[in-house]
Design a protein around this nucleic acid. Structure first.
Lengths: 351, 351
DNA sequence: TTGAAAGCGCTAACAC
DNA sequence: GTGTTAGCGCTTTCAA
């Protein structure tokens, strides 16, 4: 409980604070082997822990970073957090977790807090339109920022880690349209999240490229919530009381909505994947836990979190990479809610 | 980017640093209304943010706390985190997230980091046997600790927030044994987690109290993993190729195992809840997302997180509560994997 | 190789 | 009501 300071150690060792400091920081030169050993012994014996605040004040950096996310409870985010945390803790950085609850004002507050904590950098997974101004505050303070899974403003102007949504969507679409008789329902996400806008744009671009006919693709807006997927599909099926349905495949912009879709189809007694194939996006943990396990476009979330931390660490060390954006590739994972790629007649479970 | 300091502000306002400091900290006395307004104006105009590190050094507290958890990816923990985060951020405290990956050594490292960050307090949700010594390190430094969802050492000696597992188990057992013909399979959790030990002890105590016969209750050890629930039930069913099964109810010590049980039963074509009722423990988000939704003993995880933060804040403010332990009540939630309490013939969905 | 001393940016007595 | 001053615990020149 004895709030030991470096002076106490210096006194006990019979040397100056400067020397203790040198030992503490493993400075190669500036201290003789004897003294070093002696000081080390005292350090160990007292269990002395230097104050990070005092050190931070003196050096100008805190060895801590802020991680801003919309919602830890959303099953996708903990993966990002965990990935970043591992990369950061491995090199001795601490993490301020800033959970905004998707609230722009709270996000602003947190950014202000991070500024006054003098964090060395910020990883920002943000939603909302006010983000640009908030990021500029950090930039004005000279605090490096890495955008995670989001783009703010001009995408070439800031460092960031994003998913190649176009790639993911394209793989999904190629898979789904392997069947010439495909009639697809695409359910998009909120229009204020760059990811969902990206995905939807890709879907529509591909539809134009392939000159899909009107009955081959229906695009509906969603909100990333399970209920939404459930409701949309229930309504569509309700209208069309008999078979066949207006669609034989559903591609949801995230897994939660896909889960809602599955629930609706099950309630209606529609067989999956026999009558309708379902594909999600994200690969949250639950995707493979349900029965049948959900086919989906997997985001390498842990890796994205880790990549954002690594990128930030480089920025902190002033080792700026030539390309500002790290693009991660999503991966199509076929499980139980889709038919085999070639054989359009039986369930195919990969993995 | 102009690393403004309090001296700069003082200079621009034509007052002393002390005055600026008084304004910054909203000290009622010691500064005239004019000066105050003037300084406020400059503060606003420059967007000055005082350095938390400098302030911390001067005051001796950092307005930040550490939250140590085994694994953010485990769907139960983000709820604790979120609850604590909300309570903390509401009063201006920041959160260092320490994710140990259930690794005792990493937990020790993190505790050391928190000590040198001079956090004002620590919330510890810990696993493992080395925890006691680690907590003592914090105690030696005079850092308040609140144990969250775990007990370390003698449970009366430390502050903590725990779940009343005995209450939860008792409610569950009373519900399950409303049927005189009940034959229950109980699947426990790991033996190094106090919660799962508690639950199992309660089950066995109740069995003795009620003098349950051998065929009315089978207790099997598990590991909290989905696979484990799946395997155990698959094996049991495999042995007993025909009906009826050796059990008509399964009570799992957590939801993940219950999900595994459901999967096994579905694979085997056993109807739930008709032939076998299934009850979980935790109420993770997925519990109500699956079909049929899982009946379970709900832990008020958000509230537990919040309670731990509130308790910690009181300790930090030296306002020690008379009772060291906050006990939260779990709640039995009946959904689709159990039959109605009274009418043992049809599915009952509450909520 | 070592030590003395001047800060880092703030707060808090204590004067005025 | 306001300013002066001495730290808080560390790092880091600069001398010795």
């Amino acid at each position: 409980m004895s709030k030991l300071t470096i002076s106490d150690i210096a006194a006990r060792a019979g040397v100056s604070k400067a020397t203790v400091s040198r030992v503490l920081n493993d400075r190669a030169e500036g201290v003789g082997p004897e003294t070093r050993a002696h000081v080390r012994a005292i350090l160990a014996e007292t269990g002395f822990q230097p104050s990070a605040m005092a050190r931070g004040l003196a050096t100008g950096h805190s060895r801590s970073v802020g991680l801003i996310i919309p919602d830890v409870i959303n099953p996708f985010h903990p993966l990002l957090v965990s990935g970043a945390e591992q990369a950061l803790s491995a090199v001795g950085y601490s993490l301020f977790l800033c959970n905004t609850g998707s609230n722009g004002a709270k996000q602003g507050d947190y950014i202000r807090v991070l500024v006054d904590k003098r964090v060395d950098g910020v990883i920002l997974d943000s939603v909302g339109f006010e983000a640009e101004a908030q990021v500029r505050l950090l930039e004005r303070e000279g605090i490096p920022v890495v955008l995670l899974d989001c783009v703010i403003g001009d995408r070439a102007s800031r460092y960031g880690v994003v998913l190649d949504n176009d790639h993911g969507v394209r793989e999904a679409m190629e898979f789904l349209f392997r069947r010439p008789d495909r009639r697809l329902l695409y359910i998009g996400g909120p229009s204020d999240m760059s990811q969902s806008v990206d995905r939807r744009n890709s879907v529509e671009r591909i539809a134009r490229e392939w000159r899909l006919a009107g009955d081959q693709l229906t695009v509906l807006p969603g909100d990333f919530g399970l209920e939404c997927g459930f409701r949309l599909v229930t309504e569509l099926i309700g209208k069309q009381s008999g078979r066949p349905f207006p669609f034989n495949g559903v591609f949801a912009a995230n897994d939660m909505m896909a889960l809602g879709v599955l629930k609706a189809l099950r309630r209606a007694g529609v067989s999956v994947p026999g009558e309708v194939e379902v594909l999600g996006y994200d690969d949250i943990e639950f995707a493979r836990l349900i029965d049948p396990p959900l086919s989906t476009v997997a985001q390498p979330a842990l890796e994205m979190g880790a990549a954002s931390a690594e990128l930030l660490l480089r920025l902190i060390n002033n080792d700026k990479p030539r390309r500002k954006t790290v693009v991660m590739k999503p991966r199509l994972i076929l499980r139980g809610t889709t038919l085999a790629p070639d054989d359009v007649g039986q369930t195919h479970i990969q993995e």
